[in-house]
Write a protein that binds this DNA or RNA. Sequence first.
DNA 1: CGAATCCTTGAACACCTTCAACAGGGGTGG
DNA 2: CCACCCCTGTTGAAGGTGTTCAAGGATTCG
Lengths: 275, 275
Amino acid sequence: MTTQSMDSATAAVTGGRSTQGQCIGAMPKVQRYRTTPRTKVTMLADYCRTCVSRASCPVALLITAKSELSNSLLLHSHVLKKEDYVFYVGDVFDALYVVKSGSIKTYLTSETGDEHVVTFYMPGDVLGVDALGRNVHTSSAVAMEASGVCRVPLAQLEKLAEHSLGLFFRLVYGELTRDQQRLLMLIKKGAESRLAGFLIGLSERFEARGYSPREFNLSMVRQDIGNHLGMSVETVSRLFTRMQKDGLLDVDRRHVTIRDLDSLYKLAGLEQARG
Amino acid sequence: MTTQSMDSATAAVTGGRSTQGQCIGAMPKVQRYRTTPRTKVTMLADYCRTCVSRASCPVALLITAKSELSNSLLLHSHVLKKEDYVFYVGDVFDALYVVKSGSIKTYLTSETGDEHVVTFYMPGDVLGVDALGRNVHTSSAVAMEASGVCRVPLAQLEKLAEHSLGLFFRLVYGELTRDQQRLLMLIKKGAESRLAGFLIGLSERFEARGYSPREFNLSMVRQDIGNHLGMSVETVSRLFTRMQKDGLLDVDRRHVTIRDLDSLYKLAGLEQARG
DNA sequence: CGAATCCTTGAACACCTTCAACAGGGGTGG
DNA sequence: CCACCCCTGTTGAAGGTGTTCAAGGATTCG
């Protein structure tokens, strides 16, 4: 198992159909920034414990650990087409979502209208944490490819909270730490280090999910990478070319093969966790 | 009341003495990045409800609202000299701290040793939230001037959590949102917009605390501003000069007088909240 | 096959950094 | 009290990094 993308898992939950640009969450309550059509997507009854990404999903782990939860909690899967929205900024918060397959990105929309890609979510990641403190989402979440998510409604969430308050703190804390680390990186490092750090982050997340840390497919376009890392598409492209020249990695469109992980870590100014 | 700094409030809690470079928190458990001497600082028994910054302190507000809490919770004030630490990165988490007077900064230390100033805390702000999800602090907190903080130990914290879980989410969420907003700003805007945004942020926070939003003293040096905003000291200095030339504000060392708040908002690419 | 999107590459330019020098203030010690 | 020193802040000049503008190639999809 060397080459793979998260796409492979998608087939497992595909079964319902949905049309382009749909949204799972509640209907809009405040100003919209996007005008993608929104309707309810097909729902697929499913227990969380059948989740393919269970091993790296904190919610699934908690449910599995507590037998009283695993029998009482009925969660539903949703099938998303590319470009479908999970929620929009301003939506009332009524559920968290666990990514089961595919990949989701969230972005902020500033007052001046420009967007910033905040996070890329992989299977096992929990989506919607941004709204925990208030009751509206502060970011929008959209599928970058055909994806599946598992909806954890507010009511079920409260059931979970009774059993493990720490879960929520870990979730929110995880986002907080990640943001702060990225902030540090964006401020202190040059573009090449930032891209190297980004690739390493992906690599480690793939590895944590049982995939190869050295060969994977990017689920996002150059535009999103640049936006996320605060650089232009052209710079992303040039850096990939330079890194390839330097023998750090091979890039063919979305397909990345890391040749020299050590140097990549060094370039990012990070320490390698592995022995 | 036009000109003031947070210093004025400091006198209210000064009464104990402490020597340079002390730290309130627990003794170090992991690697230290700083070698400032650490001993317990003088403690000043005090009820939170006597806090000068109570109006803008979520903890104080909660305690005041719940009569059963206001009688059972005994919190202690700590007096910090300039450069005293509240906690170090790696310290075990055993309390949150509410800033009562003065000003505190927190910074991250990266693997390569360089530091990044994450947040400047004013009276009423809650410190130490970074450790809520784990049990160690991920940042260090140091007083930028003589300051007073109110310690809220873990045990008391749990008492508070029973009454209002939302409090914690608001706290953590606040940090999350602020970080994300700053991230967006750092990535999308140029240096001048970033500095303008920073000043507006300060202005709004001063105003929320009953001080003039147009005239205040910076509690941090240029170095810290630059570090926080991801630019060099020289750039900060040059931008202040330029803004002064453009009639946006007057700067005399730490003293800032905003002349044209509207233009400053425009420069930052923000919308003015006021009518 | 054409259209649209994505990606790459080149050249000029803008922004910010770095290096260097200096001015002013505040604190300390003689 | 004054001289000194260190820290903070300012300003100038040169240089680098990344952006913008422009054009062309590659891939996908209807």
